[in-house]
Design a protein around this nucleic acid. Structure first.
Lengths: 221, 221
DNA sequence: TTTGTGTATACTGTATTCAGTATTCATGAC
DNA sequence: GTCATGAATACTGAATACAGTATACACAAA
């Protein structure tokens, strides 16, 4: 009888709370004007305040929550200049990822990226959220393939901030299906083996996204 | 009588502990094989364990500390591949900063950068630590001038990780004065107004640093 | 000597309590 | 009605206590 190795990793309550809060924020369950109060959340979750506090402080550290003067935390509201800066940071991270990939120009990796794009662009769901989840997966796969743990971490932080502010979903008034087919162009750029060319391609892609973003923010205002 | 506005910002004990620990780690006061135990640190600092724990968890979150199986935390030891990846991440952040600066090509900003370089390259201290502090200041000024809060934050995280592992100081066996004069070349590249050219310049600069880094790590092994 | 078992110790994560601070609310004076 | 003041309330940050887990150590058996 072969016994499976038991996974020893204890999961902290604080980690569970963190994951749940992040999911609730990004799915819209927690709305942008809601105040997250330690004692109340602890009561709701039937746990003590300590792990709740740890999770909230971590979400604050991640830039997702902001503490308010009346106590509690709320979802960080981004200024237009923060939005622009976040897109620039995206360009830094995703741009470097494609530079690395173009320099490697590894057939297996390029193939894996194509597979992800094909799978995710074929989502049949009509929900905006699924749409953006697919978009996120494509971009994340791209960064994953760079095999750089720090770029992946930065990517996640950027997108967590953006998605938590409902940023990337803010452009639902603009037709996105046009830019969806754009992803394959990134693979093609990587396949040229030219890091600069590949990076210019993704910067264009991201800059275009920023333009759509600002249009959407104006539409909503 | 004009009364000054009183700064209301309460500083948490946990923040103070964080700052002290980070400084102690980066200055070498805390050595790389030392185990940081919550209860012991709390006793030493004459405070309760709670803020110590919060600070340590945050340093873990920042990638600076790693928890050990015997309890406690120790300075994260980087593998060679982590070192390489960290330099790539540096290239992403600092590369984007110079792209932004070159696109702007703002005379005041370029002047400010030159001033920082001139001041920092003229340090008279013979201590290696001062040398690297100067180097860090030059690079940080460059990223600050991009006026992008996320790039600055990423920069700090990268350098905190590197400095905490005593990474950038590991190359003290190699003569650095040669590469110090290299910084002015970065300003000149920015002044061409060509983002791609400027970024290539800093990537060269950073890649050269990585080569020195690996030489130094071999020398030490 | 080696191996297995039980106990002690070290440390963590969580729960609970205490004390301080900021905001809100109620009340009285003008 | 407006404004000032004091009390109540809400919430946080830190201290303390409790319980669980992992490691180290001691001891006995083979």
């Amino acid at each position: 009888m072969a016994l499976k190795k038991i996974k020893h990793e204890r999961q902290r309550l604080a980690d569970i709370v963190y994951d749940q809060l992040l999911e609730a924020i990004q799915s819209g369950t927690i709305s942008s004007n809601e105040r997250l109060v330690q004692e109340k959340l602890a009561e709701e979750m039937q746990i003590s305040r300590t792990p709740v506090r740890e999770a909230l402080l971590r979400l604050e550290q991640d830039g997702i929550l902001t503490s308010s003067s009346r106590g509690g935390f709320s979802i960080h509201r981004m200024t237009n200049s923060e939005v622009k800066e976040l897109y620039q940071a995206r360009a830094a991270v995703e741009g470097q990822a494609v530079r690395i990939l173009a320099a490697q120009n590894d057939a297996e990796k390029n193939k894996a990226l194509r597979a992800t794009i094909e799978r995710e662009e074929n989502i049949s769901s009509s929900s905006i959220r699924a749409y953006f989840e697919a978009n996120r997966k494509i971009h994340r796969r791209l960064v994953e393939l760079s095999d750089n743990r720090y770029l992946i971490e930065m990517f996640d932080n950027i997108w967590n901030r953006g998605v938590s502010y409902n940023l990337f979903a803010a452009i639902d008034k603009i037709d996105l299906s046009a830019s969806f087919g754009d992803h394959i162009r990134l693979v093609e750029a990587i396949e040229t083996g030219n890091p600069t060319f590949a990076m210019d391609a993704i910067i264009d892609h991201i800059t275009h996204g920023l333009e759509l973003q600002f249009e959407a923010l104006e539409v909503k205002d």
